[in-house]
């Protein structure tokens, strides 16, 4: 029950790395190294030990001008306390799902929620189209509406096995198990090397890992 909103009333910095290590797949050293990254991102605009949406976008795109449907969606999913900012606990718990050692079911669940834009418990055709169009716009690619529609037709032919015009969690699971590449962006190899990427954590380390 990582990141249970009621579990911790106060946002935690790095007061208890061992507790966070128990709640996530990270070791204590990795939590401490991850905190170095968190400090960097959270001090980019306002140095308050919290990541706001602007800082999140800045870290993702290196510019705060970029409007992104997906950056917004990812931020909202990270923000499990739904207060518009990310504390270190939320950041670590969410990134834990992206760790190569995290259970695939957690990755499937997170990706489903990511694509279920309206949070209705299923992914509908209109949402898929919105996301396809957003991706194409973002990358400056131009596909005709007919081509986009045919891509979506094909996808639903395969994914929507119950033929009700939407993709529910079970159908999503079956689809990604057939196409593991759809979960590729749910695994960050960087997280395996986080202690070597941010070696300065050793200067602040509170424990012998």
């Amino acid at each position: 029950n990582c990141c249970d909103a009621d579990l911790y009333k106060q946002p935690r910095g790095l007061e208890d790395p061992e507790a966070l290590a128990r709640e996530t797949v990270f070791s204590v050293s990795e939590i401490e190294a991850l905190y170095e990254l968190f400090k960097k991102i959270s001090s980019a605009v306002i140095d308050d030990g919290l990541i706001n949406k602007e800082e999140f976008q800045l870290a993702l795109f290196k510019t705060n001008k970029k409007e992104s449907l997906f950056a917004d969606r990812v931020f909202d999913l990270f923000d499990t306390k739904h207060n518009g900012i990310l504390d270190f606990e939320e950041f670590a718990c969410a990134l834990s799902i992206f760790h190569p050692n995290s259970p695939i079911d957690d990755k499937i669940e997170f990706s489903f929620q990511l694509y279920d834009l309206k949070q209705q418990g299923f992914i509908e055709r209109q949402e898929v189209k919105q996301m396809v169009v957003a991706t194409l716009t973002e990358s400056g690619m131009n596909l005709s509406d007919d081509v986009i529609e045919s891509i979506i037709d094909k996808t639903f032919e395969e994914a929507d096995t119950k033929h009700d015009g939407k993709i529910d969690k079970e159908e999503w699971r079956n689809l990604v198990l057939r196409h593991p590449s759809l979960l590729k962006n749910m695994t960050l190899q960087y997280l395996k090397d986080i202690t070597t990427t941010f070696p300065s954590f050793v200067f602040h380390s509170q424990v012998d890992d």
């Binding site: 990254l37 960097k40 991102i41 980019a44 870290a59 993702l60 795109f61 290196k62 992104s68 449907l69 997906f70 950056a71 917004d72 969606r73 990812v74 990134l95 992206f98 990511l114 694509y115 898929v128 996301m131 396809v132 957003a134 991706t135 194409l136 973002e138 990358s139 081509v147 045919s150 891509i151 979506i152 094909k154 996808t155 395969e158 689809l175 196409h179 590449s181 759809l182 590729k184 962006n185 960050l188 190899q189 960087y190 990427t197």
Partner: peptide, 25 residues
Amino acid sequence: QPVAMNAFELISLSKGLNLGNLFDA
């Protein structure tokens, strides 16, 4: 022409979904 790419494959190419960028902070 029929297109072979899955819509979600295309979506997963979005930069906003590539959290690896966070690590170049």
